[in-house]
Amino acid sequence: MSLPGPFSDPRVLTLLGLLAVSTVVWLSLGLRARARDRRDRARSPLERIWHPQESVELTPAEEHAFGQVVSRLDLGSAGRLR
């Protein structure tokens, strides 16, 4: 039984079949790589971020100024600092 129209050519069917198979392979390899990346990220500890206050002592005046700034911060309606 042959298909009517442009699908009657076996080359078209072969091309569509190859396109379908390559798409499935491409998607499965991409999903597999994403899952592997997630697993690797879950196993590794978070990177330590150095903060200047860890090694530089603040003077009492600097600590007071910092506390004044922080006390004026509040969360806006969208949950962002303003």
Rank of each mutant, 00 (worst) to 15 (best):
35 A>V: 09
36 R>N: 07
35 A>L: 09
54 E>R: 09
23 T>L: 10
56 V>A: 03
50 W>L: 09
53 Q>N: 15
48 R>T: 15
40 D>A: 13
24 V>K: 01
36 R>M: 01
22 S>G: 03
27 L>D: 08
50 W>Y: 11
56 V>F: 05
52 P>M: 07
32 R>I: 00
41 R>G: 00
52 P>N: 13
28 S>M: 05
53 Q>E: 14
53 Q>D: 15
49 I>N: 07
44 S>M: 09
32 R>K: 01
29 L>K: 07
53 Q>Y: 13
50 W>D: 15
37 D>F: 04
40 D>L: 08
55 S>M: 08
37 D>S: 11
49 I>C: 05
39 R>I: 06
22 S>Y: 02
49 I>Y: 08
34 R>S: 09
30 G>A: 05
45 P>R: 01
31 L>C: 08
55 S>T: 15
36 R>V: 06
47 E>S: 10
33 A>M: 06
44 S>R: 12
38 R>W: 02
42 A>Q: 15
42 A>Y: 05
24 V>L: 02
30 G>N: 08
33 A>K: 11
33 A>F: 04
25 V>W: 06
49 I>K: 10
44 S>A: 14
48 R>A: 11
46 L>A: 12
56 V>E: 11
55 S>I: 14
36 R>C: 00
41 R>H: 02
52 P>K: 08
30 G>Q: 06
49 I>V: 15
54 E>W: 09
28 S>D: 06
52 P>V: 12
39 R>A: 13
38 R>L: 03
37 D>E: 15
55 S>W: 13
26 W>A: 06
29 L>G: 03
41 R>L: 04
25 V>C: 05
45 P>F: 00
52 P>T: 13
32 R>Q: 06
23 T>N: 04
41 R>Y: 02
24 V>P: 00
24 V>Q: 01
41 R>I: 00
46 L>I: 07
52 P>Y: 14
52 P>R: 12
50 W>T: 15
36 R>P: 01
48 R>W: 10
37 D>A: 14
49 I>P: 07
42 A>S: 12
46 L>M: 06
38 R>Q: 10
45 P>M: 00
44 S>Y: 04
45 P>Y: 00
53 Q>S: 14
35 A>Q: 15
32 R>L: 04
40 D>E: 14
32 R>E: 04
40 D>F: 00
37 D>N: 13
51 H>G: 04
46 L>E: 15
23 T>Q: 02
43 R>C: 00
28 S>T: 11
33 A>E: 14
28 S>P: 00
29 L>R: 10
38 R>N: 05
27 L>I: 10
26 W>M: 01
46 L>N: 07
26 W>S: 01
44 S>F: 02
43 R>V: 03
45 P>G: 01
28 S>F: 04
31 L>G: 14
48 R>M: 07
47 E>I: 10
53 Q>G: 14
31 L>V: 11
56 V>H: 09
36 R>Q: 09
27 L>G: 04
54 E>Y: 04
34 R>C: 01
51 H>W: 14
39 R>K: 10
43 R>Q: 07
44 S>Q: 13
26 W>G: 05
48 R>L: 12
23 T>I: 08
40 D>N: 09
38 R>G: 02
38 R>V: 03
27 L>P: 02
41 R>A: 08
41 R>N: 03
32 R>H: 05
47 E>G: 10
23 T>Y: 03
49 I>M: 06
33 A>I: 07
55 S>Y: 13
35 A>G: 11
29 L>W: 09
